[in-house]
Simulated scan of single mutants.
Amino acid sequence: MTAPKTFRIGGDLEVRRLGFGAMHLRPETDEARAAHLAVARRAVELGVTLIDTAHLYGWGANEDLLAQALHPYPADLVIATKVGIRHTTSGEGWRHAGAPADLRGQVDEALGRLRLDRIELLQLHRLDPGVPLPDQLGALRDLRAEGKVGRIGLSEVTAAELAEARTVVDIASVQNRYNLLDREHEPVLKACEEAGIAFLPWRPVAAGKSGAQAEIAAVAKELDATPTQVVLAWLLARSPVIVPIPGTTSLAHLEENLGADAVHLTQAQYDRLSRAALSA
């Protein structure tokens, strides 16, 4: 099975289908910062054209680091970020922040940290249950009209929520948890596929589990690949709208992840993996 190497988000923004999730690049020491800057730069050297970040990742520190590592950005590089979450000292350490004024402020902050005039893909990190959905998405639609945002995406939504959102504004992407061993959001993937919406699975590898699954290990051995590469290859074969964004702080793991699009499953191997994972 030969999977397409690229996808056009929103129908026009072409990216390599293996992106990079920058969530883990939040160094707390100078030594870690140097290492994390090197990982971000190496990702681009290896052909990554989509990097995913968010205000939540270090409360802006992740965006700052990416700008330090990569600005001025290559012409084909898309930095996608997410808004809609604010830091708090109580509870889980965060709160929903989907009020229009808050979303507008977060976008302006992200533009400053990323040193951008326009965010080509802006995703709403979580729907705010305390703010009407048309108000949340209407604010992002207004920012798009002003030229501060290129395309609008969602994160952690159901198929019904996606359908409702699409009555308010065009949705270019959805970022939900999904991998070979965790397909809870299959209905959302199906909806994205039918509409041509990019589906960015976070946690695409199911860290710590893939290598322990016997069928994954067997297929990896047959292909002279790693279990991680096999599960990423399965995602690429699963649907042309899937754009995995595996993340790491390791240069070796980065190269391993990005080698997955050179791993070609046969139909029989793809079917074996699909059946085995569902019965695991």
Rank of each mutant, 00 (worst) to 15 (best):
T2R: 14
A3H: 15
P4L: 00
I9E: 02
I9Q: 02
D12A: 14
G19A: 08
F20N: 03
A22N: 05
H24S: 14
H24P: 00
R26N: 15
E28L: 08
D30W: 00
R33D: 02
R33A: 11
A34N: 02
A34V: 08
A35T: 00
L37H: 01
L37W: 01
L46G: 07
L46H: 12
G47T: 13
L50A: 08
I51N: 02
T53I: 08
H55V: 12
G58P: 03
W59K: 06
N62K: 03
A67R: 12
Q68D: 15
H71S: 13
Y73K: 09
D76A: 14
A80T: 12
V83E: 10
H87D: 13
G91P: 12
G93Y: 05
A97S: 14
G105N: 15
G105L: 14
E109P: 01
G112Y: 00
D117C: 06
L122M: 15
H125A: 12
R126F: 15
D128Y: 12
P129M: 08
P129N: 08
V131E: 02
L133N: 07
Q136P: 07
L137C: 09
L137Y: 04
R141I: 01
E146V: 04
E146A: 15
V149D: 10
G150Q: 11
R151T: 05
E156Y: 04
A159Q: 12
A159K: 06
A159G: 04
L162D: 11
A163P: 09
E164H: 12
V168L: 08
V169T: 15
A172R: 01
S173L: 08
R177I: 06
H185V: 03
A191F: 00
E193T: 15
I197H: 01
A198K: 02
G208Q: 05
V219M: 07
L223S: 10
A225Q: 06
P227E: 10
V230N: 05
V231Y: 04
L232N: 08
A233I: 05
A233S: 11
W234M: 06
L236N: 10
R238F: 03
I245Q: 09
T248M: 04
L251M: 08
A252Q: 13
E256A: 06
D261F: 13
A262M: 05
V263A: 06
H264P: 00
A268G: 03
R272G: 14
R275L: 13
A276W: 00
A280C: 09
